[in-house]
């Protein structure tokens, strides 16, 4: 049975488009510690659709600017470059962060909302509590990508498998039903996409962070914490929401108190509300433009 499942997942991975060159390049640049704004602007400006998304996002009602921002460099100065990686990943043809997760009883919007909130939380934790060990851009990207395996195994669940759901860690339930978890499936895709080794490790172990390699352990704990923070604050992915176990050893790697965590919940939610609305508005606007163009 496991062999069949693996074959099905491999077939899906084959069918998924690879990341576009612009997105791959952006993710690479943002993960560099000394990258400049100019590097990011140069890549964005080679891509007309991404340029348009960046400008529509920054000028959306969510940010309520007094004067519109007209250049990509001003937009990136205002938004920060990590959100640009979010926009690039959101429009990827693979749809891994925007797929409908019917097997999890979650729609495409929930999938994206969870990815975005996890990314914002991960960047918040990296900036304040990692002691400079994890770069914000890397944390943000890992937050968007951590659940890419869900879209691969979602279609393999059948309707009746969750009718009498057990009170167990959902990762164990996935393994019991399919023989493989979303984290393991995501790891297979990450390898195929040739993502950096640290990113592959995070995707594979974000529910079991103690097993991650030493050089990716802090980032894996950040994503572990960010993932559960997103679920707790109302942005889960359907049936597995809240059905995971927190590894309390996060406190060994992140100097974060209970009070810090509560403040984090609050500030992450406020940033998420603004960012989600701005990105949503820019994609809606792009969709209307494309549909007008198609009808002409």
């Amino acid at each position: 049975m496991l062999e069949d499942t693996i074959k099905k997942i491999e077939a899906q991975i084959e069918a998924i488009p690879v990341l576009s060159p612009v997105t791959s390049e952006l993710l690479g640049i943002i993960s560099e510690p000394n990258h400049s704004l100019h590097d990011v602007v140069a890549i964005v400006e080679t891509d007309a659709v991404l340029t348009s998304l960046v400008l529509k996002t920054v000028n959306s009602a969510a940010y309520a600017l007094e004067r519109p921002i007209e250049t990509v460099s001003d937009a990136i100065l205002f938004l920060g470059d990590t959100i640009i990686a979010g926009l690039a990943l959101r429009r990827e043809k693979s749809g891994v962060a925007t797929a409908n997760l019917s097997g999890y009883l979650a729609d495409a919007d929930s999938n994206w909302a969870h990815a975005l909130k996890t990314a914002i939380a991960a960047r918040y934790f990296a900036k304040r509590f990692s002691g400079g060990k994890v770069r914000e851009g890397v944390a943000y990207t890992a937050g968007i990508l951590h659940d890419i395996g869900k879209s691969l195994i979602s279609t393999l669940f059948t309707d009746d498998q969750f009718t009498s759901i057990k009170d167990t860690e959902f990762i164990d339930l996935e393994k019991e039903i399919l023989g493989i978890s979303h984290a393991e499936a995501g790891y297979m895709l990450a390898i195929k996409w040739k993502l950096p080794a640290v990113m592959c490790d995070v995707i594979r172990w974000h529910h079991e962070p103690s097993v991650a390699q030493d050089d990716s352990k802090v980032l894996t704990y950040i994503i572990h914490l960010a993932d559960l923070t997103a679920m707790m604050s109302g942005s889960g992915t359907g049936i597995d929401t809240m059905r995971h176990t927190i590894d309390s050893n996060y406190s060994k790697y992140l100097s974060i108190s209970d009070r810090d965590l509560e403040l984090a919940f609050f500030e992450i939610q406020l940033e998420y509300n603004t960012t989600f609305n701005a990105i949503q508005a820019s994609f809606e606007s792009l969709k209307s433009y494309q549909s007008v163009e198609k009808n002409q």
């Binding site: 559960l228 809240m242 059905r243 927190i246 309390s248 406190s251 209970d258 965590l261 509560e262 919940f265």
Partner: peptide
């Protein structure tokens, strides 16, 4: 609701 937490520190719910 609460996620499962053996140390009972992550119990905002």
């Amino acid at each position: 609701a609460n996620v499962s937490d053996t140390n009972n520190t992550f119990n905002i719910g």
